[in-house]
Design a protein around this nucleic acid. Structure first.
Lengths: 213, 213
DNA sequence: TGCAAACGTGAGGATTACTCATGTTTCGGA
DNA sequence: TCCGAAACATGAGTAATCCTCACGTTTGCA
């Protein structure tokens, strides 16, 4: 998983191999490229982001950019991967020590709020997850991320309801998580007031399913 | 709304006006263009669809294509609009005569099945709704469609639960509908077995919310 | 029947992701 | 310390594709 920052491509295949930065100089330059891309996505969206502009703003040539990222999607993928890695750790921590229904209620409720605020505050994340779903590799990254997150939830449910069918719990947890992400995407694409209402309604519905009435 | 087949563009603005076909000949040609686009999307997806190929397969010149569709997105938008119009009528019919909880349970359950089968069977619809969410105009069309559909559901809920807060019912109906669409998109992007399970789980959750325990 | 508007055409303009031949820097080993 | 190989850097050029536009043709109507 070490060099995975460098890959990412259409139809889920690993793209043609590109050099991973091994020297200090190039590592710093790759950071600058990612920072430039991030800024441009925040300003204009990933669709309007031009590779030439990324290179210019990073202070590197277009050729250098393509030396480390096989194509445009790869640079977006790299940014997305960072976000997922970060948030996954946060989610694991929040759910790890849940041991009863009330704890789950509190942890889940808090998690939804954090996620929602994150979506509202991070234009890059918003753009990547709500706009660029056309990219197959990104969809698969999101799906994998979602499965991983749902597993934390599954673990909690199995602990709280040891007699229930494990497969059913897995399906429920995955669905609830995916619906949460769908709700976030929806909430940020409508007005703030309606978005808040929708998130609140989701939270209510999800909790009803997770901890019963 | 008459000539709306012809418009559709970025940032929700109506695109630069394009001639609407007024003669018999051109109406037939526009149909051929839409049919060609539909076939190509079914074969390779809307992203890989080339405007030149659409024109060639429709037996018209590239110039004619652009005479009626301001840009590539417009032709996809036109196809999407047809689907929404069709399905909306079907949904309205299914929900119009619901008068009690048991009727709602049956109608909703059937509706979900129909929608799921539709998604599975229609590659064009699948492509448009699950892939090309990057297009702002399409997102807005889908949102408007979803709101319209949710309203039918809202109407039923208001009939069945006259004492409940109307605004809350609206939010609930809209959220449930959006989650349904999210579930469909998810279900078709995972395997058939898991997809079926997810749809079944969604149906259970939604019904729990709609008609109680 | 003639004319204006609608329609039809396809070569070419414009944009942009991406390549590649060539030059420069870094670094380990002799 | 020096050399050679590998890593790195460059940017003009290529290819693909969306879309335009100037000019010809057909249709409908007064």
């Amino acid at each position: 998983m070490e060099g995975s920052t460098v890959s990412g491509s259409q139809d889920g295949q690993i793209a043609s191999p590109r050099r991973a930065p091994s020297q200090q100089r190039s590592r710093e330059r790759v950071e600058r490229m990612l920072a430039a891309a991030s800024a441009l996505i925040a300003e204009q969206g990933s669709d309007a982001m031009r590779m030439g502009e990324v290179a210019e703003r990073a202070g590197v040539s277009i050729g250098s950019l393509y030396q480390f990222f096989p194509d445009k999607r790869a640079i977006i993928w790299a940014l997305a991967e960072r976000y997922t890695a970060e948030s996954q750790a946060c989610i694991a921590a929040a759910l790890a020590k849940v041991s009863d229904a009330e704890g789950l209620r509190r942890a889940f409720s808090e998690l939804v709020d954090i996620y929602y605020r994150l979506f509202l505050a991070e234009p890059v994340m918003r753009d990547i997850w709500s706009g660029t779903q056309a990219d197959k590799a990104l969809r698969e990254l999101e799906l994998a991320d979602s499965r991983a997150n749902a597993e934390f939830l599954t673990a909690v449910l199995k602990r709280l309801r040891p007699t229930a069918d494990p497969a059913a719990l897995e399906t429920t947890a995955f669905l609830i998580w995916q619906m949460g992400e769908a709700t976030m995407r929806l909430a940020i694409s409508v007005g703030r007031q309606e978005g808040d209402d929708l998130v609140a309604a989701y939270k209510r519905m999800a909790l009803r399913e997770l901890v019963g009435e």
